[in-house]
């Protein structure tokens, strides 16, 4: 049995092989299309993540001075203490002025 006789195909087998080859090309094209869509979606995700990162950097810069809130609270406490001093002073002076 020679090699040619081994590889000799019937017309049905040849048709099936052609069908497999054409189907393979179709599958390759479909895979390429789907992977292109995947690449585009991942690129969109990448851009959105960059936007989120920039927004978060702005938020971080906006909240960078929140440590001053505690200092402000301390100063407001000082204002309250000074107001109490004013209250005591006015209480002393008011009696003298009325008398």
């Amino acid at each position: 049995m020679t090699a040619m006789s081994v590889l000799a195909l019937t017309s049905t087998q040849r048709s099936l092989w052609w069908g497999a080859v054409i189907g393979g090309f179709v599958v390759v094209l479909a895979v390429a299309a789907l992977l292109t869509i995947l690449v585009l979606l991942v690129r969109t995700i990448d851009r959105r993540v960059v936007m989120i990162r920039d927004t978060l950097q702005q938020a971080a810069s906006n909240t960078a001075d929140t440590a001053l809130i505690a200092e402000t609270a301390t100063r407001v406490e000082a204002v309250l203490a000074e107001g109490l001093e004013h209250h005591l002073f006015l209480g002393r002076v008011l009696g003298k002025v009325r008398s």
């Binding site: 990448d46 993540v49 960059v50 989120i52 990162r53 978060l56 950097q57 938020a59 971080a60 909240t63 960078a64 929140t66 440590a67 809130i69 505690a70 402000t72 609270a73 407001v76 406490e77």
Partner: peptide, 27 residues
């Protein structure tokens, strides 16, 4: 890589914002 940066920035924002509630309540 960008998401890791986002994670670090979010942690920074949370640290910065943790002072706000206590200070504003006192004020």
């Amino acid at each position: 890589t960008n998401l890791e940066e986002c994670n670090e920035i979010v942690a920074t924002v949370v640290t910065n914002a943790s002072v706000i509630e206590r200070g504003v309540e006192q004020i």
